[in-house]
Amino acid sequence: MRYLIPVCLTLAVLPNAALSQERTAVKQGFELPANSGKKILLIRPKVSVGEQSTGGLFEANANWTDNARKNIDAALVKKQGVLGNTILISPEAYGDQALVSEEYTNLFGAVASAVVNYQFFVGNRLPTKKRDNKEGVFNWSLGEGVGNIPGAQDADYALFIYNKDAYGSTGRKLLQLVAAFGPGLAVKSGEHLGYAGLVDLKTGELLWLNADGAMGGDVREADGAERRVGQLLEEFPGSVEAVEKAKQQ
C-alpha cells in the first residue's frame, strides 16, 4: 500500500479539465435510510489551498490551508445533524495508525479522480470498466484494508472528503486575459475541486460519490466553507435533503 500511494496521490491532484460540473453516483442497490442506526466515521478531510502560478503550477499556502481546514471542520460539525445517521469523528491517531488513515485518504482522492475521468465521462472509459457502460452500474473500491483505519471498528461506513483550491495568481489572471484575445487559446485561472464519498468499511466498496470541479465558496472564510460543505454533501444518502427529494419524486 505505501508504495502505491505516491502514484495514487499524483493522480488525485492532477488538474481535471473534463470535470466542469457536479456529478453524483450511487452503487447499484445501495440505500441508506435516515435513522437506520448505521454509524458513519467522518475521516479528517484532505484540504489543500494555495495559488496557481502563471504557468499553472499549484503553490501551497500554509496559512490559507490551515484556515480552510478549521473552517471546513467547523462547517462539518454544523452539518452533522441533518445527515440522517450517527456521525462519529475519527479519533486522533499517531505513528503507523496516522499513516494508515492518511494513506487511505489519499487513495480515496485517487479513486475519486479515476471515477471522474473514467466513469463519469464515457469517452475516457478504462478498458477494465467497459462493463460499466450499462446505466446504473458503479463498481469501485478502496480495498478491504480500509477497515484498518483508526475508529473503523466502531462504524459501518467511512465518509471521506477531498478538497483542493488553487486561487489564480496575478500573473495567471493576466495570462488568462491575454489568452482571451489569442486565436483558439484558453487559459483557466484557479481550480476549486471537491470530492465526498461514502465507503463500506467491511468491503471497501465506494457506495456514493459526489464530485465537482468548479465548487463555490471561499473556504478561507467561514461562510464560504459552509457553502462548500453544503455542496460536497448535497443529497448525501439518508440526509434530510435526500429524503425530501425522494418524497418529491
Rank of each mutant, 00 (worst) to 15 (best):
A214K: 14
F120H: 07
A112S: 14
L126E: 08
F138G: 01
S90L: 02
S90Y: 03
G55C: 05
V229C: 04
K134P: 01
P33D: 05
L175I: 10
N133Q: 12
L4I: 12
V7I: 15
V7K: 11
N106W: 10
L201T: 00
V199S: 05
G184I: 09
G182L: 14
Y195H: 12
P150H: 04
A68H: 02
I40F: 05
P15M: 05
A211K: 01
G190M: 07
M215V: 06
R69V: 04
T105G: 15
A242W: 06
G81N: 09
R220Y: 09
G84H: 00
E221I: 04
Y167A: 10
W64E: 08
E103F: 10
G109C: 04
N35F: 11
S141L: 01
A158P: 08
R220D: 05
E226L: 09
D66L: 14
K129R: 14
G213D: 07
E92W: 08
S141R: 04
R227L: 14
K79G: 01
L4S: 13
V49S: 03
K188S: 11
A242T: 04
F58Y: 14
G136R: 06
E51P: 00
K130Q: 15
N85K: 02
D200A: 10
K79Q: 15
L32K: 00
G182F: 10
P127Y: 03
V115L: 07
E226H: 01
E31S: 13
Y118E: 15
D218V: 07
L14P: 04
R69A: 15
G224D: 07
T65M: 06
A214P: 00
V77H: 09
N63H: 10
G136Y: 01
S20H: 11
N71G: 05
P15V: 08
L99I: 10
G197R: 04
G224R: 06
A158R: 00
T10E: 15
L42H: 01
L159P: 04
N106P: 04
S48E: 15
D132L: 15
V13N: 10
G216V: 02
Y167I: 14
A152R: 02
P237R: 08
G84M: 03
A246E: 14
V178F: 12
V137R: 14
A98C: 06
L4Q: 14
S53D: 08
Q249V: 15
P91M: 07
G81D: 10
I5Y: 06
N148P: 02
V47N: 01
V187L: 13
D212V: 03
E103Q: 12
P127S: 03
T203H: 03
L42P: 02
A222N: 07
T105H: 05
Q119P: 00
N124W: 08
V49P: 00
G147W: 01
G147Q: 02
L14V: 13
G81V: 07
Q248Y: 12
A180I: 07
L142T: 02
A166Q: 06
G95D: 06
D200G: 07
T86N: 09
K79L: 09
E235A: 11
V199P: 08
G216P: 00
E59F: 08
L32Q: 07
N61G: 05
Y167K: 09
G55W: 09
F120C: 00
V82P: 00
P91L: 09
Q248W: 11
I40D: 00
G216Y: 06
P237L: 10
R220K: 14
L9M: 13
D132W: 12
L175M: 13
E22P: 10
L201R: 05
V229H: 02
T10D: 15
G143N: 00
